[in-house]
């Protein structure tokens, strides 16, 4: 993560020129920054794909915030501050879906159990039918449609906290139902 003084100066110089509209300097800056950011995220993200996504998102943020870089100051702390926030945001959004791990596991288990194609989907729907309407809608949007908690909250006109609570209750109920079902099948 540490940049040599020379490297930092070079990036700072390119950024200064980019603020003035120099596209060639900006191209050099983004290419070198991309490499640095990739290296930064690879050891911190859960996969190579996630590292790539984070790198690209950070480059977009750097682009949007380029007016806040103050020439004469080191470039690295500025860029890595943005990268760090991106990473924190990434982990935060992932942690919001952590309770879903329970459901992921159960869905995986069901997929394995219901091997004939198409039956898994039916089985998921059947399982979800155990749930009250409000809980079922939340789980469907989160886990079947793949919406984020924020998007689900917006879709259902609920608060984020309400979505989390509803999802948590749904997962608990599902876990109990599946456990009972599993024991019954054995």
């Amino acid at each position: 993560m540490a940049l040599t003084e020379e490297q930092d100066k070079r990036l700072a110089e390119w950024m200064k020129k980019a603020q003035g509209g120099d596209k060639a300097a900006y191209d050099c800056l983004l290419r070198e920054a991309a490499q640095l950011l990739k290296r930064y995220f690879v050891s911190r993200a859960e996969s190579n794909e996630a590292a790539d996504d984070l790198m690209q998102e950070t480059l977009v943020s750097v682009h949007r915030a380029r007016h806040t870089y103050m020439s004469g100051r080191p470039f690295a702390p500025w860029m890595y501050a943005i990268a760090r926030r991106r990473l924190v945001d990434h982990w935060r959004s992932r942690s919001r879906t952590v309770p879903c791990d329970v459901l992921d596991e159960t869905l995986d288990w069901m997929d394995k159990r219901e091997s004939p194609a198409g039956e898994a989907g039916e089985s998921i729907r059947e399982t979800l039918s155990f749930l009250p309407e409000n809980q079922r809608r939340v789980v469907e949007l989160l886990k079947v449609d793949g919406l984020s908690i924020k998007e689900t909250a917006r879709e259902l006109d609920l608060s984020i906290a309400a979505v989390k609570v509803t999802a948590h209750r749904a997962y608990e109920r599902l876990r109990k139902a599946l456990k009972k079902n599993k024991i019954g099948n054995q």
């Binding site: 980019a18 603020q19 003035g20 509209g21 596209k23 900006y26 191209d27 983004l30 290419r31 991309a34 690209q56 480059l59 977009v60 682009h63 380029r66 007016h67 806040t68 870089y69 103050m70 020439s71």
Partner: peptide
Amino acid sequence: MIDDLVKDLRPVRPVWPI
């Protein structure tokens, strides 16, 4: 993506010093 960002580059006025 880098090409798109470069294409999108416009001169900006750096934020005032603190």
